[in-house]
Amino acid sequence: SRSSATDDFCYVFVVELERGPIGLGMGLIDGLHTPLCSPGIYIRTLIEDSPAAADGRLSIGDRILAVNGTSLIGADYQSAVDLIRSGGKKLRFLVAKSDMEIAKKI
């Protein structure tokens, strides 16, 4: 049931990606380095025809909450990137869809 008119609806989904020759095809950025000024791993770029883009659900501004079951909330940015890079060939991402306002800032 809709609790409030402007419900802070947060759409979260799981994406399984397999690393391709160029990796997953995502460029990540720390939310602190964007006009958002709030920590978090956000998708800054998506390379066409890459595993990440091919999935179709990922878009710029989305936030990565966890990788392979490991939460990135509160983790520092570099260790999160290292975790993704060392996550092996198949990676499971928990992603939070961002609305237009956030996407624009990223």
Binding site: G27, L28, I29, H33, R44, T45, V81
Partner: peptide, 12 residues
């Protein structure tokens, strides 16, 4: 600013 920004993006 663009140069600085692209520098902070990590490709995975």
């Amino acid at each position: 600013r663009q140069a600085r920004e692209t520098q902070q993006v990590s490709d995975v």
